[in-house]
């Protein structure tokens, strides 16, 4: 485990850059993490990130199907927001662990 300075805050991250303590997350951090993935963070991205954080806190297993049914964005839209990693990149930006689901 390592710490990394993101947006002026020292946060715990794992070797793949996923935050290990979701409580350290802020929107400013999300913006920086998004930049690392070549994503310009918008309100749409943030809505998804916040939804993922809520679900993660509830202990839910996250899948793109679940996000697609959340009413926030459909799956096609999710791919557009997070190209090449609809669940992985969104989870990283949301400051939650790397998803373990195959769907």
């Amino acid at each position: 485990m390592a710490t990394k300075n993101i947006a002026g805050i020292s946060v715990d991250v794992n070797e793949e850059g996923y935050m290990t303590d979701p409580s350290q997350w802020t929107e400013a951090i999300a913006k920086e993490l998004a930049k690392e993935e070549d994503i310009e963070l918008t309100d749409e991205h943030l809505k998804v990130a916040k939804y993922l954080r809520e679900e993660h806190e509830k202990g839910a297993v996250l899948t793109i199907r679940k996000v697609g049914k959340s009413g926030l964005v459909d799956i096609k839209g999710l791919y557009k927001l997070f190209p090449g990693g609809p669940l992985k990149k969104s989870s990283k930006i949301a400051g939650i662990p790397k998803p373990t689901s195959c769907v």
Partner: peptide, 11 residues
């Protein structure tokens, strides 16, 4: 299907 979906999810 899982392999195909898993692929697109990884880019």
């Amino acid at each position: 299907l899982v392999m195909a979906n898993g692929a697109v999810m990884e880019g």
